[in-house]
Amino acid sequence: MVTSIIRRLIQAVFVVVAMTVIVFIGVNVIGNPVDILINPDANQAERARVIAHYGLDQPLWRQYLLFLQGLLHGDFGDSFVYGRPAMGLILERLPATLELAISALTIALVFGLPLGLYAGLYPNRVSSKLIMSGSILGFSLPTFWVGLMLIMVFSVELGWLPTNGRGPTLELFGAQWSFLTGEGIRHLLLPAFNLALFKTSLILRLTRAGVQEVLPQDYVKFARAKGLRERRVIAVHVLKNLMIPVVTIIGLEFGSLIAFSVVTESIFAWPGMGKLIIDSINLLDRPVIVAYLMMMVLLFVVLNFIIDVCYTILDPRVRLDSKA
């Protein structure tokens, strides 16, 4: 098991390095950093100064090493817009995004798992068919449009919930959190539901597919033949097998939730990383863009690693084989 974890760690490092190359090439070679960095009205001397400052006159491999060096120190340069270190800006906004993504994932699980289980266990009921058609809708609805409609109904028409910002926050573990105040939760509700919609459908469909795959298995029949109560057959024999794909997907989808939060954050003016990156792309704030991308790469690699470990723990076939 230790060797397999080490092997996965090496793979993870490989992915990070590969992504730095891709991001580097993307930003510095395909896009012309001179155009991005320098005011088009700048004079020749100014251009030369900036080029020298960023080392753009150096050969590519040296530039890459410089880039890597900065990366290792978490130094991505100062934001053009805010004039502060880019990484600091990202980190400041990370808790808001995490909070949103975790809330959305929780909602998606709370609704998706039981509904999917129900639809899988009783596929012929009308209610199951309704759930499944609903999930197709959830799949097809563009998130950003749903966000607007949520605002229209719950804020504009009904006036129940606020439309933007995090509301009052409280500090916990050195970061600010909305869910600790009542008003904050009211602010969190709409964005979290908005972000959760797509994932709810996904988890629901996945759960149902899993149930339908597991139910006809002989071991489920055998469990019934032992005289187990139906409750135990479902809760232990079916669910435990179901958890393996579900955990994998939850890990992956959590990352995707963070990426997709750009949309929800833009709509609800949620002050997270996503809102920052969109503003940065619009303003061509290169250091922030690079910092965000590298942050996401790191996040995904860590997530994938955690999923692998969870998977190993959940599935005895993997766990025990790698031990041998």
Partner: peptide, 20 residues
């Protein structure tokens, strides 16, 4: 490598490089 990142992130990355 590519499939381990969500589409929208890849798209954002490309747009960050290529422009709008």
């Amino acid at each position: 490598l590519q499939l381990s990142f969500p589409t929208i992130l890849m798209a954002l990355m490309m747009l960050a490089v290529l422009g709008k």
